[in-house]
């Protein structure tokens, strides 16, 4: 992938995430108003495909966005760059997507 494509991916996912994060924060405030347990939250969200789609998109965007930001930080602050770093970051993206989608699947 070219630097331009990575740059575009980072900006596009940022645009997607901006409203999603706000809704997500609002949802947290609402959800924890009665104390917070996974069971309790799941009992309220389970089976709702709209929330599943919402968090599916959220997870995928975050999985693309976060490693790209980390890539710039590693490059600028620690001088780490090159294929090896990119490979590790792809794995990191896969890890984020995997963990996130597992949680989304639990909702369905």
């Amino acid at each position: 992938m070219t630097e331009a494509a990575l740059y575009a991916a980072q900006r596009v996912t940022a645009m997607i995430l901006a409203p999603l994060v706000l809704i997500h924060l609002g949802l947290i405030l609402y959800a924890v108003s009665d104390g917070l347990t996974a069971d309790e939250i799941l009992s309220r969200t389970r089976g709702n495909m709209a929330w599943a789609a919402f968090y599916g998109l959220f997870v995928l965007s975050a999985a693309v966005h976060a490693p790209l930001g980390l890539r710039n930080i590693l490059r600028e602050w620690l001088g780490l760059r090159g294929r090896m770093v990119d490979c590790v970051l792809v794995l990191f993206a896969a890890l984020l997507a995997g963990l996130g989608l597992r949680a989304v699947l639990a909702v369905i």
Partner: peptide, 10 residues
């Protein structure tokens, strides 16, 4: 330049 490079990439 950023704008142009992204437009050209896609």
């Amino acid at each position: 330049l950023k704008r142009r490079s992204v437009l050209q990439t896609f």
